[in-house]
């Protein structure tokens, strides 16, 4: 199943609406034929990434998820429109959330989306067909 790319979702930044981007990410991961455990871990990665981003200094308004599927690879970039010079924030790379994200994803990195602080996560499906 192929997914046209990129997919872009914007929600008002806050913990209440993280479930929307989480559901979109899981839905796309499922359509990329990622195994169910990988789909579940994409949800986990989105939750944890959102929780790091939402700790950025206010003000901010929007949480944005861009997904660019490539083959069976789920490549997501979650960002927040906060203005912070320090990214990643001090201690973030040693945080439990970051350990979880890097644990469940094949690749994860602190990045910027334009000027917005962002977290990149990549989850690949196993090679099936054997």
């Amino acid at each position: 199943m192929s997914v046209p790319s990129p997919v872009l979702v914007n929600v008002p930044a806050g913990p209440d609406l993280v479930h929307i981007i989480r559901a979109v990410a899981a839905s796309i991961a499922a359509r990329l034929d990622l195994p169910i455990d990988a789909v579940e871990e994409v949800r986990v990665a989105v939750d944890e990434a959102a929780s790091i981003l939402l700790q950025a200094p206010a003000p901010y308004d929007r949480l944005s998820l861009t997904i660019e599927p490539r083959g069976t690879e789920m490549n997501g970039l979650l960002s927040i429109d906060a203005r912070t010079a320090e990214w990643p924030p001090p201690g973030a790379e040693a945080s439990w959330s970051w350990r979880v994200i890097s644990g469940v994803c094949d690749e994860a990195a602190f990045e910027r989306s334009g000027v917005d602080p962002a977290i990149r996560f990549i989850k690949r499906g196993p090679m099936l067909g054997g």
């Binding site: 199943m1 559901a23 899981a26 839905s27 499922a30 359509r31 034929d33 990622l34 195994p35 169910i36 455990d37 990988a38 789909v39 499906g125 099936l128």
Partner: peptide, 19 residues
């Protein structure tokens, strides 16, 4: 681990229902 596409027909549900 199966994919959602594999689970859906076995469970007699649509893709979205599985999700």
């Amino acid at each position: 681990s199966p994919t959602v596409a594999e689970v859906a027909p076995r469970a007699g549900l649509s893709h979205d229902e599985v999700l």
